[in-house]
């Protein structure tokens, strides 16, 4: 076989809730270092698909491979430990913890310190990494503030930062800029553009401007199945996509 190993792959992935088919035989490849976007109208099954990838739901059929390794049966935290990390669309940060505590949690778990009970959170390695991640995402000044008092743009940056703190091989970004005021939006776009090239990024997004700026490849999910996949130019020219998605967006 001369096909290179993908960063993340699904083979015939399906999820049925009773009679409802939420994910229908999806075979999808995310290449190493990819900048890939997944789009689809509301109710296309994007959220179910992410939950299958991250292990929150288990599939009715099919497999999920991370770096060629079958992870279909692994729990969510085990997938995170293997380098598959997601961000959340709706804010699910720990509101009354500080960014410092949130980042220290993620970095600590990655360093294998999560079971350490006899000494305070800290240590040089952990503090250095927290500082690095905080600086990268413009959070150094707000490390000691309660997360729910941060400007929304900073909260979205923390959302990405805490995923990044796991040093992921694959990063799933679920509508990273949704709801962010225009003035803070550029910070988030910059942070996403500055992600290291060796991290494969899958962007799940409604904002077509962001998708076409960012993605080198785009997959279109409709009614739980992959409709098509291609370069931004190909997707923009695809009449079926226009019909189900862009057309709808133009009206709505």
């Amino acid at each position: 076989m001369s096909v290179p190993v993908s960063a993340l792959e699904t083979q015939g992935l399906a999820k049925r809730f009773g009679g409802l088919v939420a994910t229908n035989d999806v075979s999808f490849r995310l290449e190493k270092g990819a900048r890939h976007a997944l789009i689809g109208p509301n109710g296309a099954g994007k959220t179910t698909f992410i939950n299958l990838l991250t292990g929150v739901l288990s599939p009715s059929a099919g497999r999920v491979l991370l770096g060629g390794e079958d992870i279909t049966r692994l729990k969510p935290e085990a997938r995170v430990r293997r380098g598959l990390v997601r961000t959340f669309q709706i804010n699910q940060l720990f509101a009354d913890l500080t960014p410092l505590e949130t980042l220290a949690l993620a970095v600590g778990e990655r360093l294998g310190e999560g079971t350490v009970w006899h000494r305070p959170v800290g240590g040089n390695a952990l503090a250095r990494e927290v500082d690095e991640v905080a600086a990268r995402f413009g959070l150094a000044d707000v490390l000691d503030m309660r997360t729910d008092t941060l400007p929304y743009g900073k909260q979205r940056l923390l959302e990405i930062a805490v995923a990044f703190a796991w040093a992921p091989r694959v990063l799933l970004l679920d509508e990273p800029a949704a709801g962010v005021p225009a003035a803070e939006r550029q910070d988030i776009l910059d942070a996403i553009a500055a992600l290291p090239a060796d991290v494969a990024v899958l962007l799940i997004e409604h904002d077509m401007g962001l998708v076409f700026d960012f993605a080198q490849r785009i997959s279109v999910l409709v009614e739980g199945a992959l409709l098509t996949e291609g370069t931004p130019a190909e997707i923009a020219a695809d009449r079926r996509v226009k019909a189900v998605y862009l057309g709808e967006a133009a009206h709505g």
Binding site: T54, V56, K75, P76, E77, A78, V80, R81, V85, R86, F88, Q92, L93, F94, A95, D96, L97, L105, A106, E109, R110, G114, V162, W166
Partner: peptide
Amino acid sequence: RRNPLRAAALGVPV
């Protein structure tokens, strides 16, 4: 305590 699902998504074996 705040959000078990979120904690798992950060790699915590809940």
